[in-house]
Simulated scan of single mutants.
Amino acid sequence: MINPIIQAMQARAELLDIQGSTQGLDDALANLAGWIELRQEELHEDDLAVLLEVGGILYREGLNRRMGE
């Protein structure tokens, strides 16, 4: 059974494809960073840590792709 949040992400990805979106990892990072910046003071420390880890993973994956790994 797939997690409902992952299902929602999959549905969103499919919608982005249907819409012809060209957004990629850099766009996702920019959106995440902008959202965190706006909400940083409202976020619990644990939530901020998780979001920064997700951002770190996205950043690393984007860097690895650019480096050809």
Rank of each mutant, 00 (worst) to 15 (best):
I36P: 05
D17F: 07
L48C: 03
L63D: 09
E41Y: 13
I6Y: 15
G55E: 06
E61S: 08
G68D: 01
G55V: 04
L16S: 09
A30I: 13
Q19F: 06
D17M: 08
W35M: 09
Q7W: 07
L52H: 01
E61A: 06
G68P: 09
G62Y: 04
Q40M: 01
E37W: 03
R12A: 14
E14G: 06
L25R: 02
D46F: 01
E61T: 03
A33L: 12
A13C: 10
L25M: 12
W35F: 14
H44S: 03
G56V: 07
Y59V: 02
D46P: 00
E41R: 14
L52Q: 06
E41Q: 15
G68C: 08
L58M: 09
I36M: 10
N64Y: 11
L16H: 10
G55P: 01
L51C: 01
E53Y: 00
N3A: 13
I57A: 06
L16T: 08
E41H: 14
L25Y: 03
D26L: 13
Q7I: 09
Q19K: 06
W35D: 14
I36W: 07
L38H: 13
E37F: 07
E37M: 10
Q23A: 13
A49G: 05
V54N: 04
A8E: 10
W35Y: 14
G56K: 03
A28Q: 11
L16C: 01
E53W: 00
N64T: 02
L29N: 09
L51Y: 02
G68Y: 03
M67Y: 06
V54Y: 04
A49M: 02
A11W: 08
Q40W: 00
G20P: 07
I6N: 14
L29D: 02
Q7H: 13
N3Y: 11
A28L: 15
Q40E: 07
L48H: 02
D27T: 15
I2K: 14
M1D: 15
I2D: 14
L29I: 10
L38N: 11
G34A: 11
L15D: 05
E69C: 01
E53C: 01
A13Q: 10
A8P: 12
